[in-house]
Simulated assay, not measured.
Amino acid sequence: MLEHVRTSIEVSSECSKEERLEWLMKAYGDDIARLAFTYMKHKQLSEDIAQEVFIKCYEHLDNFRNESSYKTWLYRITVNLCKDKLKSWSYRNIVLTEFFSKIKSTSQSPELELVGQEDKRLLSEKILALPIRYRELIIFYYYEELSYNQIADLLDLRLQTIKSRLHRARLMLKKSMEGCKINE
């Protein structure tokens, strides 16, 4: 438990490279895999990407300059690896069938839980159907709870570009959800 309480500064200054990597994997491993899944839409591919992220992290950990947080740095590596994979021939020839869901359930009864799961599935499918440039903003803003500035830094885009794309993404998502029955 104490491992997760450490800050990135404490981790970088007092731990060995292996200890830092282990801490990063524990702290951000699930988030990295989930982020990769939002791009790849396939569990196995997202796990492969997450492994590649931490391999790259280990290789370049000594060069980390603390200009951003470890989380932002790992997200940047993840996004770049995912985009490279999406451009590859092998990915373009794979059929994708899975979806993601990180929305926390607040249902109490089994019936409400089942209805909530169906709503999550539908929303997840609609989000994953968005073009990547809009999907990634929805994921970063709503699921990863990053600020506009963090997203702009992560994607190396202007703040106004982030705001306008997120607005368009919301409109696209709203339009795709019209006619869908969501239980509230």
Rank of each mutant, 00 (worst) to 15 (best):
K56Y: 13
V79D: 15
N80G: 07
T72K: 10
L45S: 14
V53F: 02
H60V: 09
E67L: 15
T72H: 02
C57Y: 01
V79T: 11
F64A: 02
K43M: 03
Q51L: 04
F54S: 12
V53T: 05
R76F: 09
K56A: 04
L61G: 00
C82A: 07
Y70D: 05
W73E: 07
W73N: 06
D62A: 13
E52A: 11
F54I: 07
R76K: 10
N63H: 14
E59N: 08
I77W: 03
W73L: 06
K41I: 04
I55S: 11
E59H: 02
S69W: 12
E67A: 09
I49Q: 03
C82M: 06
S46A: 09
Y75S: 09
M40W: 02
R65E: 13
A50T: 04
E59M: 13
S46V: 11
S69T: 15
V53M: 07
D62L: 02
E59Q: 12
L45C: 01
Y39D: 09
Q44D: 13
R65P: 11
S69F: 10
H60P: 00
E67R: 12
V79M: 14
D62V: 06
W73G: 04
H42F: 09
L45R: 03
L45Q: 03
F54L: 07
L74Q: 01
K56C: 11
E47I: 02
N63F: 13
F64Y: 13
S69K: 07
I49P: 03
S68N: 05
H60E: 04
N66I: 00
C57G: 10
C82Q: 10
L45E: 03
R76Q: 06
W73S: 05
A50E: 00
E67H: 10
I77Y: 01
R76A: 05
C82D: 06
F54C: 07
I77V: 06
S69H: 08
Y70C: 05
